[in-house]
Every structure is written in structure tokens, then in C-alpha cells.
Design a protein around this nucleic acid. Structure first.
Lengths: 189, 189
DNA sequence: GTAACTAACTAACGATTGTTAGTTAATGGA
DNA sequence: TCCATTAACTAACAATCGTTAGTTAGTTAC
């Protein structure tokens, strides 16, 4: 475990504040106060408020892209791929719930990097959709409208960061199992 | 259909802007520009930026509370109640996707009305949870962890406003049916 | 031991924020 | 015709915004 640099500490604390109030409502003076320093001192470590947001969001977006590529190349059946994607979301949500909050609610405040982010997100959704389409063709999944399945799964998986902090470590394995049951098998007996 | 007052028009346009950029990032001058007037002129119709947010969010929060009360008093089985709640969310999301965006992403910027909003939301979630608990006791639902079912359904239902604007009217009945299938029966064959 | 680096500080900048005050033109009912 | 209402305007306010400049004290490398 490498020791956290001052810059990394600032970005981590910024992500916490962004989760609480959103990017626009957090001022550099808020961030400085949380770091117990003057606002101007932040600029010894970071280039701009915008650069902090980019750091937080793009790191996660790229982790999702990488995870999707692994799933596509390694998993076999469609249901196995969906299971692997659920596990991917749970893993990232556990590791970085604050960053995910910024990604989910503040992506539109990206400036230069907005197009790049949207490209990553589009690619991810297209890959996700293709797996569902394949599963229906395979007869592994029910022939429900693809967009409804996609949006339902993504909505739940993208909201995980809101719920996971409430769970302790012991219950997270159980969360993964239960979530898979609910999303794949349904809740009706 | 009563004609829209100037005040209602301002609130409606504000909700659109809040959906695009979030409450904090929208300035009164942005809103004025969208209304084709000066920022100061807005104050002939509304009391404050904060009051606009309150109007938007509390109207919807109270509609959910009312809808929940109807569901509890009218529906019979637990699954029927859940079906009715899905329909409630779809109905509100179709009628007011912009307002739902504000409720979902900007509720924490409520000031005096924050506690009231949180109380409504808590009551709603508790009622939702009780229906699921009842369904498991009844043997209508699988004995999966209640919190996982609750969070999974609420995540999907609360995100509906993001997807519904893409659907045309014809497809919305289909959306309701498919969504019910996915959330209740699952997607696995 | 001194040079370079790290990380903080104070002071201030121009721009933008929500909002108020005071005024004006158009409209509709008595 | 007069009056109240509606709905816009211009001008400006104090506060706050992200950021820059210039400086200083402590730590590390050679």
C-alpha cells in the first residue's frame, strides 16, 4: 500500500464533498476548509477545480471500460457475462463510492473531457446491450424489450454507491449474491 | 386544461434547466435568458431561487406520498401492491420527468424544507419496505434480503425519468408491462 | 552548508452570484 | 376616465467565486 500523496488526499476529500453537495455547490474554500488549509494553497498541488473533477471521473470511467473488456474476452454464456458485470459494478462501488457519485451526478460539468467521457459511456452501454441481445437470441434470457432490461440493470448497478456504504464488509458477499438473484431471477416465487 | 400562469412557466423552465445542469449550476440569469427576460424581472413572479426548488420537489414528493396511501388502502396481494407502485412511478415520471430530476439530484439543496422532504421520503421507503416484508412472509416473494429488493426496485423506478423521455407514447404501455416483468419475474428463462 | 523542493501563507484580482430598489408601459374592470 | 394590476425594465448592491502573484518556513539532497 503506497502512501497517499497530498494531491491524492485533496482529490479524495474533494470526492467526498462532491458526493454530499455536487460539484457546482462545492467551493474551493469548502475544500480548503476540509483540508484545513487556505484555498490558495490547494493550487500548489492541483491545477484547477475542473482538473479534480476530471481525475475523479475519468479514472472510474476507464476502470469500467477495462472491466468490460475483460468480461467480454473471458466469460462464456451471456448470463455468466451479466454476472461478471454485476460483480464489476459491486467491486468498483465498494472501492470508490464517492468517485462514483461524482461520475453519476456531475459528469455534465466536465468541460474539455466531456466528449471523451461520453464516448466511454456510450461504448460501455453498447457492449452491455450486445450481451443482452445475445442472451435473448441464445434463449438464455426472456424476450423482454432489450432497452428495458438494459436500463433496469444499469439503473440499479449505477446506484449501488448510494447503498453500499451502509453495508459492512461481512454483508457485501451476501449483497452480491442477492443482487444477482434479484436482477437475473426476479423476486416472484 | 387551465392556461399556464407566468409563474408556472418560470418554474417549468427552471425544472428543465435544473435537469440539464443541476440546481447550483443554474443561475437566475440563465433562467432569465431561457425566459427571454431580465433576471430581476423574475422576481415579479417568484420569491427566490430556493422557492422554485421547493415548488418543484415538494409537489412531486407529496404526489408520491398520496399515491402510496392509495396503493396501501386499495391493493390486495403484495405483488399487486408492487405492481401498483411500479405504475405510480411510471405515471409520475411520464408527467414530470424534469421535476423528478430535480428531486433525485438536488433534494440536498433544499434549505428550510429539507427536513420535511426527508420525512416524506423516509415514510415512503418504510411503506415500500413493509410491502416487501409482507410479500416474503406471504410466500409471494423469494426470501431474498429485503434491503436488496427494496434498493433494486427503487433505483430502477427512481431513474425512470432518465429513460422515459426517449420513449414515445405508444411504447409506454409496453414499457410498463416489460418493466413489471423484469422487476418481478426476472430475466432468466 | 547551501541549493532545491515542498507546502503552506497573505493579499488581492476581475467576474459572477442572488437579490433589491425604483421606474415604466400596457392592460382590463368600474 | 380613472385606477389597480401585471410584467417588464435599468441600475446597482454586497457577497462570493476560482484563481494568481509573491512570499516564507521547513525539509531533503548533494
Amino acid at each position: 500500500m503506497k502512501k497517499e500523496t497530498r494531491k491524492e488526499e485533496i482529490i479524495r476529500v474533494a470526492a467526498q464533498l462532491f458526493k454530499q453537495k455536487g460539484y457546482s455547490a462545492v467551493t474551493m474554500r469548502d475544500l480548503a476548509k476540509a483540508m484545513d488549509m487556505q484555498a490558495a494553497s490547494l493550487y500548489n498541488h492541483i491545477n484547477s477545480k475542473q482538473a479534480i473533477l476530471q481525475d475523479i471521473i475519468l479514472e472510474i470511467a476507464e476502470a469500467f471500460t477495462e472491466g468490460m473488456n475483460v468480461v467480454i474476452s473471458e466469460s462464456n454464456s451471456s448470463v455468466e457475462k451479466l454476472n461478471a458485470l454485476i460483480a464489476l459494478h459491486v467491486r468498483i462501488a465498494i472501492n470508490n463510492p464517492e468517485g462514483l457519485a461524482a461520475l453519476n451526478t456531475d459528469w455534465m460539468h466536465l468541460e474539455e473531457k466531456l466528449d471523451y467521457y461520453l464516448q466511454l459511456r456510450n461504448d460501455y452501454e453498447n457492449n452491455f446491450r450486445a450481451i443482452i441481445v445475445e442472451g435473448i437470441k441464445n434463449d438464455e434470457l426472456k424476450p423482454v424489450d432489450v432497452e428495458v432490461i438494459l436500463f433496469s440493470m444499469l439503473s440499479t448497478l449505477r446506484s449501488l454507491y448510494l447503498w453500499i456504504p451502509k453495508k459492512d464488509a461481512i454483508k457485501r458477499q451476501q449483497l452480491l449474491e442477492d443482487l444477482t438473484t434479484v436482477l437475473i431471477q426476479g423476486i416472484n416465487k
